[in-house]
Each structure stands twice: as C-alpha cells, then as structure tokens.
C-alpha cells in the first residue's frame, strides 16, 4: 500500500505528529468519580490507514471511542475530524459528518429485516422526515439505496439473508451486518469496537479482509483489539493505551518490541516469577 509510505518517517513515540491526520484529539480527559478513564495529551490518526487501538482491560479504549464519537462527553479537551471541531456535537451528527462507529456488543436491529437494517443507515432520505413520509416522493432514493445495500450485502456474503429478521442471524453474521450497515453511510472514518470479539477463527480472517478492504477503498479504520497477532497482521499503525493514557504508538513491529507495552500487558515484573 503506497499510503503507508508517508508513515515511514513518523517517529514511533506517543503523541507524534503525522503527515495527514484525519482525526486529531488534544488534551482529552474523562474521569468517572476518582478514576481517570481517559487522559490523552495529543493523538492523531493518519488518513487511509488501519490504526489499531490496543491495551489491557480498563485502559480506556472504549471510553475514548465513546468520547470521539459523541456518545460520551469529555470533562476537558477538544478534537477535530478533518479540521472541523467536534466538541459539543451530538453523536448522531458526528455520524453524519463521516465518523461511524460499531459497538463491542453487536447491535443489530433485531426485529427489522437485514435489508431494513441497511436502509435505515442510508443518509439524506427525505422520507425520513415526517412531511416527506406522508407526502411520498422518496421511492427513487429508496430504490437507489436498496441497490447499494444489495451490493454491500453481497460483498459481506449476506445477500441471501436480506429478507430475514436481523435477530435470526448468527453472532458472526451480525458482526458482518453491523460493518456493512456502517458502510451504508459512506463514512470517512470507521471506528470498530472489538469487531473480532467472540468470533470464530474462520470469520476473524474474513473480518480482517473486510477491514483492510475498507482501507483500500479509501476509508480510515480505527479499531479496538486485544489479540496482538491480529493487530500485527493488518495494522499500519498501533496506538497502545494503559490507564487512560497513550503509552506508546508506532508501526506494529516496533510496538511488539516496546518495553512499556510489554510491561502494560504482562505486568512490570513478568520477567521474574510467573504467578
């Protein structure tokens, strides 16, 4: 991928500047009571990359996702998408501006069909307004959306399920549906919260292919993951969090050897006696 070249000169250190950041966060802080869940000085996400966010449980990864996508409000700090500030912007508007997220626990709209799950994600359908719904005139948009949804469902191998209720899908199929649904919005940045959690190895491979496919289609992917092997395989850049802070970032090879990362994952005394 030629896109990874610009990253070659970027130093692997926390908070480093990148040549073409799509997402920038400054001094972002969120605490729950006495717990400092997120405390980030500076973080940039390079455009057209797969950036993975790793860290032990409780490192603040999901909280960071919630903050960036407007699902939670920081105590302090600011962040931009494509230079546009996102402070005080409601979650649904963040999504419309091109940053779409998925959830750790899959959220399919169970009693809607797979096709309706896709269509509900489409943008700018005037039939979604009350007036448009009553007066009609939205069928052409709907047809175009359906065609696009069918294409996406084919890509994710779900086209034969289009008319089934989403609640009838298997866990893995729901993950695929959630990803396909997010793409229905034509997002610029896709934020995937543990897309590989609870998924069998065969499906993991298929999900990974889809994720790199997104990058190759010109999107920026940020995803949370625990499994280091997975991260090594597809990431262009890795950001490591522990106790709410970014403790390291860099290309996957550099991260694998990083002392601070090993300490954060295995505990500082792992070289001594196994417990």
């Amino acid at each position: 991928m030629s896109d990874s070249h610009p990253m070659a000169d970027v130093a692997p250190e926390p908070g480093v500047r990148k040549p073409d950041p799509v997402l920038v966060a400054n001094n972002l802080q969120r605490s729950f009571g006495g717990l400092q869940a997120v405390d980030i000085d500076h973080l940039e996400v390079q455009r057209h990359t797969v950036t993975s966010l790793i860290g032990p449980n409780g490192a603040g990864k999901t909280t960071l996702f919630n903050l960036l996508t407007g699902f939670d409000t920081p105590d302090f700090g600011e962040w931009h998408l494509n230079g546009g500030p996102l402070v005080g912007i409601a979650a649904f508007q963040v999504a419309r501006r091109g940053m779409v997220r998925t959830f750790q626990l899959t959220r399919s709209l169970a009693r809607l069909t797979v096709m309706d799950n896709m269509l509900v994600a489409a943008k700018d359908n005037k039939g979604e307004g009350l007036w448009g719904a009553l007066t009609g005139g939205w069928h052409a948009t709907e047809q175009a959306n359906e065609d696009r949804a069918t294409e996406l469902l084919e890509r994710f191998g779900l086209e034969h399920m289009a008319n089934e209720f989403a609640g009838g899908l298997s866990g893995g199929q729901r993950k695929l549906l959630e990803m396909a649904r997010a793409l229905m919005m034509n997002p610029e940045v896709v934020m995937l919260d543990e897309p590989m959690a609870g998924v069998n190895p065969a499906l993991t491979q298929s999900l990974l292919t889809h994720i790199t496919g997104l990058r190759d289609a010109g999107k920026t992917v940020v995803f949370v993951e625990h499994d280091m092997d997975v991260v090594q395989e597809i990431s262009d850049w890795v950001v490591v969090m522990a106790e709410g802070r970014v403790i390291a970032e860099g290309p996957p090879e550099a991260i694998a050897k990083n002392r601070a990362v090993i300490d954060a994952y295995l505990g500082e005394h792992h070289g001594e006696a196994a417990t």
Binding site: F71, A90, L109, D116, A121, L134, W138
Partner: peptide, 29 residues
Amino acid sequence: HRLMKSPWGRVIKAIREDEDATTSLGKNV
C-alpha cells in the same frame, strides 16, 4: 400505515430495537 411503511417508520422501529445503534447511524433519536 403510510407512516410506518415509510423510511420515517423504519427509523421509529429501529429506535424501538436499539437507540444507541440508531444514533450511531446518524439519526436524531
């Protein structure tokens, strides 16, 4: 009937199923 067969109705049903998911799809729940 007309409302629920429209995209408006689809968003309404989506909200019944999962508000956060519907928000994440850019709808003002």
